[in-house]
Simulated assay, not measured.
Amino acid sequence: MADDLLSNPRADRVKAVRALADRSARRRHGRFLVEGPQAVREAVAPGGGCVHELYATPDAAQRYADVLAAADAGGVRVRLATPEVVDAMSADAQGLVAVADLVHAGLDAVVAGAPRLVAVLAHVRDPGNAGTVLRAADAAGADAVVLTASSVDVHNPKVVRSTAGSLFHLPVVTGPELPDVVAALRDAGVAVLAAAGGGAHDLDDLLDVAGRAPQGVPDLAAPTAWVFGNEAWGLRDEDLALADAVVRVPLRGRAESLNLATAAAVCLYASGRAQR
Rank of each mutant, 00 (worst) to 15 (best):
L185Y: 07
H123R: 15
L203D: 05
D72I: 00
M1V: 02
R18P: 01
G141W: 08
R252Q: 11
L80G: 04
V146T: 04
A140L: 02
A81H: 12
L54P: 06
A255S: 14
R27S: 11
A70I: 05
A93N: 09
L102S: 13
L107I: 05
S7P: 00
P83Q: 08
G234K: 01
Q215T: 11
P171L: 03
A274C: 06
G199C: 08
H155V: 04
D239F: 01
L20A: 13
H201C: 06
A243Y: 02
D239V: 00
A16E: 13
P115Y: 10
Q215H: 12
A93F: 02
W226L: 07
P9H: 08
G197P: 04
A210D: 11
R116Y: 09
V247L: 07
L203R: 05
S150I: 00
G216C: 04
A263T: 08
A263V: 11
A71M: 10
G106N: 13
A71T: 12
L6H: 09
A21K: 12
E84W: 03
A130L: 14
E231A: 04
T224N: 03
H52C: 01
S90K: 06
W233F: 14
D204S: 03
V34N: 09
S271T: 15
R28V: 02
R116A: 12
V40K: 03
A122R: 00
A45C: 08
R77E: 15
A164W: 00
A122P: 04
A93H: 10
A56W: 05
L170A: 10
D126S: 07
A164I: 05
L121M: 13
A241S: 07
F168M: 09
S150M: 09
A61W: 08
P179W: 01
A21M: 12
L220M: 13
A61D: 08
V85D: 10
G198S: 06
A264I: 05
H29K: 11
V120D: 03
A142T: 06
G131T: 03
A274F: 04
Q94H: 12
P176A: 04
A221K: 09
V51G: 13
R135K: 11
V44N: 10
A119I: 13
